[in-house]
Write a protein that binds this DNA or RNA. Sequence first.
DNA 1: TATTGACTTAAAGCTAACTTCAACAATTAC
DNA 2: GTAATTGTTGAAGTTAGCTTTAAGTCAATA
Lengths: 152, 152
Amino acid sequence: MATVEKYLTIGEASKRSGVPTTTLRFYEKRGLIRSIRSDGNHRLYHREMLRRISVVRVAQTLGLTLSEISNALSDLPDQRTPTKRDWERLSKRWRKQLDERIAQLQRMREKLDRCIGCGCLSLKSCAFYNREDHYAELGSGPQLLLHETPDA
Amino acid sequence: MATVEKYLTIGEASKRSGVPTTTLRFYEKRGLIRSIRSDGNHRLYHREMLRRISVVRVAQTLGLTLSEISNALSDLPDQRTPTKRDWERLSKRWRKQLDERIAQLQRMREKLDRCIGCGCLSLKSCAFYNREDHYAELGSGPQLLLHETPDA
DNA sequence: TATTGACTTAAAGCTAACTTCAACAATTAC
DNA sequence: GTAATTGTTGAAGTTAGCTTTAAGTCAATA
């Protein structure tokens, strides 16, 4: 146990958050979370960091990439741990993206419906080949459930 | 141009399908498409293969992984190129998955709405941490828009 | 015939988000 | 005190879906 009860060792933080220690270190390397060190060079996480870890995981569940999450978090003044107010702002923004994603899938469904009927699939002429929804073609790496903005 | 008009060289198939030649070779390695060889060992794609390529791409747009697509295609008798009837069957199945995915995102949206209000985010107790929708945790690799079945 | 341009291959590289490994140091439990 | 546990590091491995590279072959054109 950490000497100062305000802080948690990586093992404790892992247990409370449900996130593997290896992943916590990884997040730290990526700048998503931070820690101070003990005399023996062990990481010590401030209790507030748990909320931050939590925000990261929820955002991932929503489909955001770590870079997107990183951006969102770095928008917070002084990189502070999200307060309830911050969370409200972030989650509202993400809710909008979720809406967009749902709408997009619904449009895709309509296209597919029209496509099932005609069975065309004539590549160039098929609705599927006329823009939008080409997530599978955006290069490599994880395909997202949400996107900040498709391009730029 | 291929001597026998029934077949296309990889370059021709690429142009008609809009899929890079490198990707066509990759798909072939993955067993998604097939070809015969010319005297000079160049690939020759039967015209019907264009439809198959098309199905692969549409399925990807819908969010299926290449393995899932591979499975779906291998369900076809004798691994034949999808006929209009096959396409109908496949696309109807995928439509259902699309429905499920949309429903899932909608449930996620409801959760988020409840979460925005309370601002709890207390990790273990938060709705987000009580199962389902943990797509971001299914290991590495592309996160999917659809899934055959969450677990095997 | 010579020169492009299209094609062939295996192998390595890329991104994301981790996990695993190896080798060693600090803490804790007994 | 010593053994077990927990922690530290950098580097390499993993999966998906490609792309890139290198080094050489085939085909079409002037």
